[in-house]
Amino acid sequence: MKLHEYQAKGVFADAGVPTPKSALASTVDEAVDAADEVGYPCAVKAQVQVGGRGKAGGIELVDDEDELREAAERIIGMDLKGLHVDRVLVEEAVDFVDELYVGVTMDRGEGKPVVMVSTEGGVDIEQVAEENPEAIAREHVDPAFGLHPYQARRAVFSAGVDRDVATDVARVLTTLYSLWDDKDGTDAEINPLMITSDREVIAADAVMNVDDDALFRHPDLQEMEEEGDVGGDELEQKADEYGFDYVRLSGNVGIIGNGAGLVMTTLDLVDYYGGSPANFLDIGGGAKAERVTNALDMVFSDENVDSVVFNIFGGITRGDEVAKGINEALESFDEIPKPVVVRLAGTNAEEGMEILNTDLVTVEATLESAVQRAVEYAEEEA
């Protein structure tokens, strides 16, 4: 479960993390009322769960009501990286002199939680990790004992945080770890954690993701999940209706498979051959015509998709039945909007390959060749 910014900030504030004064709005008039409450200057921030909102035009600073109305009219209802914006957070502007990053996640390689601090806040932390990993100080935590105060201080000082605010930053980091642990979090971060001209620390953004399987222990978060289910990614909502495991990504090669491991392997190969995955879509066991049609409808509905690769392994479901389902699904479209590449393996795979209508799809014998062909199609279509 991904909390919206306003929800995560509420959780952080309740735990004692300083956050700016803010109010949620779903109309321009509500945004005006919210600004009157928090004061000018203020920020109008799209409430969608995607990074890079500022660069995409989803965050705007305003100085008065006229500017606020203009910003709210533009942002509410906009399409932001494929997500429909239904609400904005109107938040008091922070007079900052520095931006930090603090975060908590699980280090799968070490098998332990890790807390992170960087003085390069306010930018994509993944880019920092790739280009300048030394800029991120890390401390691994023994979950049996939690984050010790000395570890929080060591991470803060190792990152190069100014001494006069180091104690406050360490306190925020300790609180963030406690929340991550208590709420069964998968990720928790503040980017940026702003340092004001008065040398106060304020969480100008907030991210918190929670393990879905642990929500039964957190009825307060379950309520937030229902409250936050407004607008958002229409494709992910459609996936819930169809019963698919689906995650939208930022690339242009659509991926459909029957099994999470199969789909993950396909994603890795798309990346390996120079492409960029547009989604993770596991249609599960069975691939009858209706299910395949629903999957294709979803992938074709993503405007970023330039090609589609089907990776199907016939286990209990026979390959020839899968092939019939794919044919029927594609024949239901008046026009196939994007090239489709199919790879079949497993039970009755050879029979299935012979059945597939090559006027509608490109058939490849191996997964590697299918992915390469889909990447080539995507490059041609882009």
Rank of each mutant, 00 (worst) to 15 (best):
A287M: 07
D14P: 07
F310M: 11
E120F: 03
N191T: 02
P192D: 02
S369A: 10
R153Q: 12
E380A: 14
S250D: 14
L61H: 06
R53S: 04
A23Y: 12
E134A: 09
S197V: 12
A144F: 15
V123M: 12
D245H: 11
S250T: 13
G54D: 02
K112D: 11
T293P: 10
V309E: 00
S178A: 15
R373C: 11
R153P: 12
A35L: 05
S178R: 15
E134D: 07
S250F: 15
L360A: 09
G77N: 07
T105R: 11
L344Q: 02
A323I: 03
L100G: 03
L89H: 01
S332C: 10
E60D: 14
Q237N: 15
A239G: 00
P339E: 07
P149T: 04
D306Y: 08
F244L: 07
E227P: 08
G275S: 08
S118N: 00
L100M: 09
L249K: 11
A46I: 01
D181V: 15
E139D: 05
T186N: 03
E91G: 12
V308Y: 01
G16I: 08
D63E: 13
N191G: 06
K288H: 14
S276L: 09
E223L: 07
D245F: 14
D320S: 14
G121K: 02
G251N: 06
L3K: 01
E331A: 10
D36K: 12
A137K: 00
K81I: 05
A31W: 03
L147A: 05
I316V: 10
S158F: 11
I195Y: 10
A206R: 02
L235H: 12
P192L: 06
D205R: 09
A25S: 03
A159W: 03
D302M: 03
G243M: 00
E92R: 13
P20H: 05
E350R: 10
S158D: 15
G315A: 04
V309M: 04
D268Q: 08
D182G: 12
V308H: 06
P18R: 05
V308W: 08
N311T: 04
N132D: 12
V28C: 07
E234A: 13
G275Y: 14
M264I: 05
N132W: 06
D142R: 11
Q151H: 13
T358I: 08
H140P: 06
D220V: 03
A349S: 11
V11F: 09
D212I: 13
D63A: 13
Y6C: 00
E70T: 05
A345R: 11
G228N: 07
T186M: 08
S369V: 08
V210R: 00
V123L: 08
A166I: 01
L249C: 07
E321G: 15
S307R: 06
C42H: 03
D302Q: 03
L330K: 07
H148Y: 13
V141Y: 03
A152E: 00
D79N: 14
K45W: 01
E126Y: 10
Q49W: 08
G109P: 04
E290L: 14
V141G: 01
N304K: 13
A15V: 06
L3A: 06
A323P: 01
G58Y: 01
V165M: 00
V85T: 01
T27D: 05
L367E: 05
W180F: 10
G16N: 04
D220T: 10
S26R: 08
Y40T: 05
D212S: 05
T175F: 09
A144H: 15
V340D: 11
E226Q: 15
